[in-house]
Design a protein around this nucleic acid. Structure first.
Length: 260
DNA sequence: ATGACTTACAGGGTAAGA
């Protein structure tokens, strides 16, 4: 069972790249972020023809998250985090896929920092931490996957000194991420590659892709009920090198059920 | 410090990204 997360940076302009990746990698579950499309513009028909059923939480212009599953319709659990009635951003959707609870999240960027956007990021993070505590201790398997907009450590970016004041590296941001993981989650990519430099994002500027100047900001967190099934992890870097690619690459885990 | 790219919305220039 392969579960992936992919910030598509515009699902309409990225549709061909998305379909090519689905065809080639055949993930069982794909969490998408930055749809940048309202609900009625979601390409449901194209994805159905590719073999994927979906639930989505769109928004005009920006944000937007979705969960795709191959051959089965995800059963929606919630859109948005609890206690977020005044939050108009579409940044979280949760569904049950074959008994696994899947959360697809797009955590706020938070730049410029300091400022109201950074305050919003930290407030959103606090709501996520609170909700995640329940999920973490569930007896059901859970994966929280998405674009966290967090560079967890200096190992997770090509040059941390260039970004000391960036919202993705600030101590407050990293402290939130550490508190989240400390609930009992496993950062799957880091667990699988304890000391390697792994990147999931290369911005469009300054030939950062060509120079491999990347960041690891897309994460898959596994709760203790799911952790024993982790059997592989990776980044589909080839997708980042395609014409018209997103600035993020799909990131994934493979899970092996103990009963076969 | 700024700007380099890209997408969306709109039909030009601005907002947003990280």
């Amino acid at each position: 069972m392969k579960i992936a997360t992919f910030n598509v940076n515009g699902i309409r302009s990225r549709l061909n790249n998305l379909l090519e990746w689905l065809e080639r990698e055949q993930p069982d579950v794909a969490c998408l972020q930055e749809l940048k499309a309202p609900d009625d513009a979601f390409p449901e028909g194209d994805l159905l023809m590719a073999g994927y059923k979906a639930v989505w939480h769109g928004q005009k212009g920006w944000n937007g998250v979705a969960i795709l599953a191959r051959g089965v319709k995800p059963v929606e659990i919630r859109k948005g985090l609890p206690e977020a009635d005044e939050d108009s951003h579409s940044r979280y959707i949760e569904a049950n896929v074959n008994g696994i609870i899947i959360g697809s999240l797009y955590l706020p960027n938070g730049n410029p920092q300091p400022g109201p956007k950074f305050d919003y990021k930290l407030a959103w993070f606090e709501r996520l931490i609170k909700h995640a505590a329940t999920l973490c201790h569930s007896s059901q398997p859970v994966v929280l996957a998405g674009d966290y907009n967090v560079v967890p450590t200096d190992l997770d970016i090509y040059n941390p000194r260039s970004y000391l004041t960036d919202a993705l590296l600030r101590p407050e941001t990293r402290a939130c991420y550490q508190r989240l993981v400390a609930q009992g989650w496993t950062d799957a990519l880091r667990a699988w590659f304890p000391e390697e430099r792994i990147y999931t994002f290369w911005d469009y500027f300054r030939q950062h892709w060509q120079k491999n100047s990347g960041w690891r900001i897309d994460h898959l967190l596994l709760n203790p009920a799911l952790r024993p099934q982790l059997s592989d992890a990776g980044v589909d870097k080839w997708a980042r090198g395609q014409p018209g690619a997103s600035d993020h690459a799909p990131t994934w885990v493979r899970l092996e059920s103990k009963d076969g």
